[in-house]
């Protein structure tokens, strides 16, 4: 039960290496079934991506902290979590260097430059994924058909020939396929069974709070119920709530990314705002933008608004009222 305390505020985190380690370790444990599913569905290349991403994330953190003469904190496992989540957000046919570049960006540009663990304002894995997507759109297209149980590297398929579950007009996937993960997609987002299992594990051990995932998913459900009017249907393709909930990165995003302590609001009401905001944005981007899936951008946008939400929901982290360092003020 003492873990309940930890969930409340980011500023506590970075002085408690041991606590951080315990939290991060439980997140890694919650992610392991999904890693296994990724390898099962997408073969050896998926395993390679996971290893490269995790190793480069840890290496980036270690090298950076050595170079800047900071205490080395790789043992807190946070870099492992970042590497895992980043790998889960890559398509199965991505080249190895994409995983390495992504991990370096996540750890150095997004996390360490802003002061390291607990101080970044964006989820490192997600922001890195977005940067990769904006840079190498073709390589980041999740258009590889899974081939359950085969070790061979997946074949890169023509972008046009394979419709992902969220391509407009796609009908080729059943709800059951979407649920157990036999669909094209980023390697870690397809298997909803293991993701939900991990989510339940984290909820039970109170590593994450229920508010963000529940309000996030509920908002998307309501939006699609208004749009389609159908809760679920075995035949009618993508136009029902359940199909949309099980498609794309919604589940992994709601359970593992939006709940990041550092980049989500502190108070309960703030968390609900975050969840609803993510849901609305996901719906808008999925339906109207040029990207088929909006989960990462929706969460990133709410990350940007998080400091503002924290202010308006009345939670002031320690020292908030204090004047800034006058020297800093004068400089700019």
């Amino acid at each position: 039960m003492q873990k309940k305390l930890i969930v409340s505020a980011a500023p506590y985190l970075h002085n408690h290496a041991a606590t951080t380690q315990r939290i991060m370790l439980s997140v890694v444990i919650a992610l392991l079934p999904t890693a296994a599913a990724a390898v099962w569905f997408f073969g050896g290349n998926a395993l390679m991506l996971i290893v490269v991403a995790v190793v480069s994330a840890v290496a980036a953190e270690y090298i950076w902290q050595k170079l800047t003469h900071k205490p080395v904190t790789v043992s807190d496992m946070s870099a492992v979590v970042t590497g895992l989540l980043l790998a889960f957000n890559l398509p199965a046919n991505a080249p190895w260097w994409l995983a390495a570049v992504g991990s370096f960006l996540a750890i150095i540009l997004i996390k360490q430059l802003f002061g390291g663990l607990g101080q970044n304002f964006m989820n490192p894995a997600l922001a890195a994924r977005a940067i990769l997507m904006l840079s190498w759109t073709g390589l980041m297209a999740a258009n590889v058909l899974p081939h359950a149980g085969q070790w061979a590297a997946p074949v890169a398929l023509d972008a046009v020939s394979v419709a992902t579950p969220l391509t407009h007009g796609a009908t080729g996937f059943t709800l059951w396929q979407l649920f157990y993960g036999d669909v094209p997609g980023m390697i870690g987002e397809t298997c909803k069974i293991t993701l939900l299992l991990g989510g339940v594990f984290l909820l039970v051990f109170r590593v994450i709070d229920w508010r963000i995932p529940v309000s996030f998913i509920a908002t998307v459900a309501v939006a699609y119920f208004i749009k389609t009017g159908t809760l679920y249907s075995m035949e009618s393709g993508a136009q029902n709530v359940l199909y949309q909930l099980l498609s794309g990165g919604l589940i992994i995003g709601a359970v593992f990314m939006a709940t990041d302590y550092v980049t989500s609001p502190i108070t309960g009401i703030g968390k609900l705002i975050m969840g609803v905001g993510c849901g609305v944005l996901l719906f808008v981007i999925r339906e109207f933008s040029s990207y088929p899936e909006g989960c990462s951008f929706a969460i990133l946008f709410m990350n940007v608004l998080t400091p503002l939400i924290d202010r308006f929901t009345g939670s002031k982290p320690f020292g908030f009222e204090k004047q800034e360092n006058p020297a800093k003020e004068a400089k700019a």
Binding site: A130, I131, I285, F288, S290, L300, F301, V304
Partner: peptide, 9 residues
């Protein structure tokens, strides 16, 4: 980067 998600909206 976050704002880029709205491209093509």
């Amino acid at each position: 980067v976050a704002f880029q998600g709205f491209a093509g909206l």
